[in-house]
């Protein structure tokens, strides 16, 4: 082996080692802020670490998307939305930037909704008190709670977490959320769920990840139905909405065999769908946009519905017809 060969091998090895070290550092340290910002929205710090499902929606981006604008043209004026605006001062179209939602497992699923946007705390608190709410201070955060109603309605709490950040949920869940943020025991310390979030959150404006097995085990489903549900541990669903819609659904099965079975079932369903949709170009085009991938325990179904296809699917008035 001559000197040039040794130099070449050293150089090649150095490039390889440097690249791998960079990736490893980014993987473990979450470093390189310029290249890779922290995973997920900062509001995840309010989600308890045992959350079974967490979801995110960039409401601002979705409301401003071309698709939403087109749908808005054909939908009748939404009176409920206007009434909500009048009473709370919140214009859903403009005032909410994004929302984070979570469901924690337990005897009753506890849901938490955290919203970032432009809110008027005084107006919201007054409205809540008018509807029977009582204000309290919990760990320096202002909460307005309504006790559980005898007719079966559960307790509800509105919390003002930070300027421009509110949370809605039952009282116990809201208090757990505040505790989680203050004691740094939020879902951000759950590596499994955050790895899934990191894989999807940058490229989609709406996503949800969660423990499928926890949800099904607590859903009180009949035995026959439970037997038909594939053995899936994790699921992740994400979408990007603009002129078209692209998205993916990924599941992590409990073992390779279950994943392989699931892949076959999905491929079979797609093949059957393609066969049945020959006479319907819209359905055929939709099916063509589906793609199944994944190895090992992972199964992923991704799709892209371009704007032209949505033009075919949406009602005629939904898409402005260009005049020649």
């Amino acid at each position: 082996m001559n000197k040039n060969t040794r130099y070449f091998m050293a150089g090649s090895g150095a490039i390889l080692a440097a690249g791998l070290a960079t990736g490893l550092f980014a993987y473990y340290g979450g470093g390189f802020a310029a290249l890779s910002a922290s995973t997920g929205p900062t509001e995840l710090s309010y989600v308890p670490s045992d959350a079974a499902v967490i979801a995110y929606a960039d409401v601002g981006a979705i409301m401003n998307s071309e698709l939403r604008q087109r749908i808005k043209q054909v939908l009748p004026t939404q009176e409920g939305q206007e009434e909500f605006h009048r009473e709370t001062g919140i214009d859903i179209e403009r005032d909410i930037q994004y929302v984070v939602a979570a469901v924690t497992p337990g005897s009753t699923h506890s849901a938490l909704l955290v919203a970032r946007g432009n809110f008027n705390p005084t107006q919201l608190e007054t409205l809540a008190v008018q509807h029977g709410g009582t204000a309290e201070l919990y760990r320096d955060k202002r909460l307005v709670s309504r006790a559980a109603q005898p007719e079966g309605q559960g307790s509800g709490t509105l919390a003002f977490l930070e300027p421009g950040l509110i949370a809605i949920g039952d009282t116990a869940t809201i208090k757990r959320a505040i505790d989680a943020q203050l004691s740094a025991t939020s879902v951000t310390s759950n590596d499994e769920i955050m790895t899934l979030v990191a894989q999807i959150e940058r490229t989609h404006n709406a996503w949800a990840v969660g423990r499928f097995d926890v949800l099904t085990s607590q859903a009180n489903l009949p035995e026959q139905v439970l037997r038909q549900i594939p053995p899936v541990k994790w699921f992740a669903a994400a979408g990007h909405i603009n002129g078209g819609v692209s998205g993916m659904v990924r599941v992590e099965a409990t073992d390779d065999e279950a994943a392989e079975l699931l892949r076959r079932q999905v491929n079979g369903a797609m093949a059957f769908g393609e066969m049945m949709s020959r006479s319907d170009p819209r359905a055929a085009a939709m099916l063509k946009s589906l793609d199944v991938s994944g190895t090992g325990k992972s199964v992923q179904l991704s799709f892209t519905v371009p704007a032209e296809l949505l033009q075919m699917v949406l009602p005629a008035g939904a898409v402005p017809v260009e005049q020649p």
């Binding site: 980014a26 290249l35 890779s36 990191a198 940058r202």
Partner: peptide
């Protein structure tokens, strides 16, 4: 490795794509 370092950081994360 060079392609990974050049391409992945564009709207992506080096850490998330490391595996």
């Amino acid at each position: 490795v060079l392609v990974y370092l050049l391409v992945v950081p564009m709207r992506g994360s080096l850490g998330a794509s490391f595996i």
